[in-house]
Design a protein around this nucleic acid. Structure first.
Lengths: 226, 226
DNA sequence: ATAGAGTTTGATCAAACAGTCAAGTTTTTC
DNA sequence: GAAAAACTTGACTGTTTGATCAAACTCTAT
């Protein structure tokens, strides 16, 4: 009788679960939860649908497994931001780690983005607890650096958003990036170009350090209501 | 006999098509093309499925209509970047227009993001022609500003990516933004905070203008291969 | 080598899905 | 106000999808 595998992990179980999760990551990251089908995943994993369902009894179980694993990986680069280090190198390191993740794990990035676009129905609670606590903690660190004059003043939480968005962009919008850059600029070197650019952006900004004919800066306005 | 509506647009046709597209935008922007169902859209538009299919014969037609309309709206803010204007106010204006779009048209932003995550199967050609040409043109403008010393030097195309990603983040990852900011900071004012922050980021960068104890800057490295 | 646990699959099911159709109802046109 | 055009819908079709199951097959430990 077909029974769900229990506690003991056999060799075949380990292998097949890995193959399924790999194929599922591919499909879910492209089409989102609802748009993905078990048939596609089974096909990608090179096994029959009932066989796949022997390892994961429901579609949801596969997705949940992927999401659970993802969160740890996703938070790690921020966790490594070190209060004791020097502000600029620390931020540079953080940006680099995030960009490397976008380069090396684009499917994970897209899976995460898909979950967000859907309104994060499955990880909403985690966002409001674990993620918020972590960001609060690191925002405090950044805030202290700014108060000590070691960083230019700016909203630390929005700074973290900016690092997230700019780096993940190279995974989530990869098609657009490559289409816009063209064959010349859009090759493998695009991540190095991105790293160089982001360093300039975050550390130096666009205003020239040695102004030569810069227009006077208009006073700050926030968003109008059109 | 039920025949598809032809050239002439009646009042009812205009109204119903608008209602359908509005409901479809809601559904497609959350679940992507494959994850959306005609039943959901018909339900959201408050009409029966056959009635909906009287106005749009296939699911694809609805999606394509949305995508086609989107592109013009999406490109407009960049088109308005004026070569004759002053660099910093021009960029500030562009950032503001994009952020206003994220605030006022989050569903359109998510629809676009969803299409990108899927690999842009339906607009790939447009990206490589119209979008690339436009970006090439504006990158040239920015490049000229930099060459004239009116802007700090940085890769203009990656600069455009950064503006896209940071602003669209507030629409596409809205759940995460609000979860992280919490009830206090995550209210309506979050877009004003974002506007202020992005202005600081893009114009000033994080390096303090008046260093007081800033660590020496390590030499630039690009991405390692870990 | 053999018993039993672990694995695989063809056949199948009910629900969800995109799309059709003929017959009705409402609106517009003259 | 009657005819025509436009609109609406219940019933339906064929297909896809998530999930089940019993029977067959393979592997592993003794």
């Amino acid at each position: 009788m077909a029974k769900a595998p229990v506690e003991r992990k056999t060799r075949i179980q380990t292998e097949n679960k890995a193959r399924i999760l790999d194929a599922a990551l591919e499909v879910f990251s492209r089409h989102g939860y609802r748009g993905a089908t078990i048939d596609q995943i089974a096909d990608g994993a090179g096994m029959s649908k009932p066989n796949l369902l022997y390892y994961f009894r429901r579609k949801q179980d596969i997705y949940q497994t992927l999401i659970d694993r993802l969160l740890d990986t996703w938070l790690k680069p921020l966790i490594e931001l070190d209060q004791e280090g020097d502000p600029l190198p620390e931020l540079r390191g953080y940006i680099r780690r995030k960009l490397e993740m976008a380069r090396d794990y684009p499917r994970e990035s897209r899976l995460f983005a898909n979950e967000m676009l859907q309104g994060a129905p499955r990880i909403h609670k985690v966002l409001e607890t674990r993620l918020r606590d972590l960001v609060d903690e690191k925002a405090e660190v950044i805030s202290d650096w700014m108060a000590a004059g070691r960083l230019n003043r700016a909203d630390p939480r929005h700074l973290i958003f900016a690092i997230w968005s700019t780096t993940q962009h190279y995974a989530d919008f990869d098609v657009q990036v490559r289409a816009v850059l063209g064959p010349k600029r859009g090759g493998e070197g695009r991540f190095d170009d991105a790293a160089r650019f982001l360093e300039t952006l975050f550390l130096d900004g666009l205003k020239p350090r040695d102004p030569q004919g810069v227009a006077p800066q208009p006073k700050i306005r926030v968003l109008g209501d059109e």
